[in-house]
Design a protein around this nucleic acid. Structure first.
Lengths: 219, 219
DNA sequence: ACAAAAGTGTTCGATATACACCCATGT
DNA sequence: ACATGGGTGTATATCGAACACTTTTGT
């Protein structure tokens, strides 16, 4: 029996939620897109395998990965029995991807415009999106996606895009303030013909649950 | 690489939360207790494997299993590389276990009095308990543990034991009523020198999230 | 009659939601 | 001066938490 890992990597670019896919070079599903991933080596932990495969296939390395769940339907892989442990990640859109060569074709896709996908990767992505929505409301995983310094509007946009709904600016800021997870840097974004926005950073950069409060922006 | 499944099966007996363990007959960890589980066969799905192993080792069969997470540390099994997909279940305490023979030794253990455990099963149980607490607050998984007909006090006791805290009777009943997941059967429990309690059943017996509300009894 | 668990509503505080205007800048 | 996005506070509604007495039965 073979054990694989797959990474569902989300980012936000141009106000849209995107996902990182690679084009498969070999059968099965040759030429189709799939989640980055591959087989786990005998001496590496599961998450290490996911990090390695991600770097090999897309150039993205050393990011925070959260285990999603394991897909083990007996017929999910035409090559034989392969189970796959899926990982979830959020990264900043300015990470460089490996240049597209004949050995590597990694691209961002709009969630609303996914190509046909190999294996059960469509299902994995569905599950991931649900999980991502849960994560951003209960943990500080959003740290992963924003630049070191960011404005409150950028942060709010992130939530709006992932949750796919608009949020009230004042209420959003109030809750973020209450959570106490941000620090003002004192600097300002000076861009565009409007009042400059204050820059913030996260007080902690370790993945963790948001204080005691679950359910921060549900409903 | 080998793929195993393990089942963390909880029950409640005598007002205590218990967990189902088996004594290992062969090395490694021979004679120590472990979660019921074993290797996945080539042609069965992961959950099927968990059901099968559970029945073989404990006599418990055909119960609701929820995937917890996958444990894949490279050194977790001294025999070599084995990853294990853990499943969580709640069952009623009156399920008969396989009689203890030299081929089978399955027993319930108080969570507070666990023996030394094989592999990383201690960690798996810790994670399961957290997950169980989350599940009973966000899904109707408690269906699995109660008899077909039960009293509101029995249901409340279940929550109190799993959450390890007391709940207010009136608030508890109000919320359960609001959730609309119970039906009164019209029958009464006539036992003990006190007012008889009304029997209820669950309106649906399928595992599902509790309406829109997450976070039903947190805090 | 008494012991034992079942059953039942209301008040109060905390949290979530709805909502509109002024500010600082670039052009 | 005007267009653009940044920034701020309050009032109301909803939800969660605290709380005590009456009812029905068996002995």
């Amino acid at each position: 029996m073979q054990v694989a890992v797959d990474a569902v990597v989300f980012t936000i670019a141009n106000n849209d939620l995107k996902i990182l896919l690679i084009k498969r070079k070999y059968p099965p599903y040759q030429g189709q897109y799939a989640l980055p991933g591959g087989f786990v080596l005998l001496d590496e932990n599961l998450e290490e395998a996911a990090q390695r495969e991600l770097e090999e296939e897309t150039g993205v390395k050393n990011i925070f990965l959260k285990q999603l769940r394991t897909y083990g339907n007996a017929k999910r892989d035409p090559r034989g029995r392969v189970i796959s442990v899926a990982y979830l990640a959020l990264i900043s859109a300015d990470q460089k991807l490996k240049a597209t060569t004949d050995a590597s074709d990694a691209r961002w896709f709009l969630l609303s415009q996914l190509p046909a996908l190999a294996f059960d990767h469509k299902e994995i992505i569905q599950d991931s999106l649900e999980n991502l929505r849960y994560e951003i409301q209960t943990t500080n995983i959003s740290f992963q996606i924003l630049p070191k310094k960011f404005t409150l509007t950028q942060l709010q946009r992130l939530y709006e895009i992932i949750l796919d709904k608009t949020l009230d600016k004042r209420n959003f800021r109030k809750r973020i303030r209450e959570l106490g997870i941000l620090k003002a840097t004192g600097e300002q974004e000076r861009e565009g013909a409007h009042r400059p926005a204050a820059f913030y950073t996260f007080a902690s950069t370790k993945y963790q649950p948001l204080s005691e409060k679950i359910n921060v922006f549900l409903k």
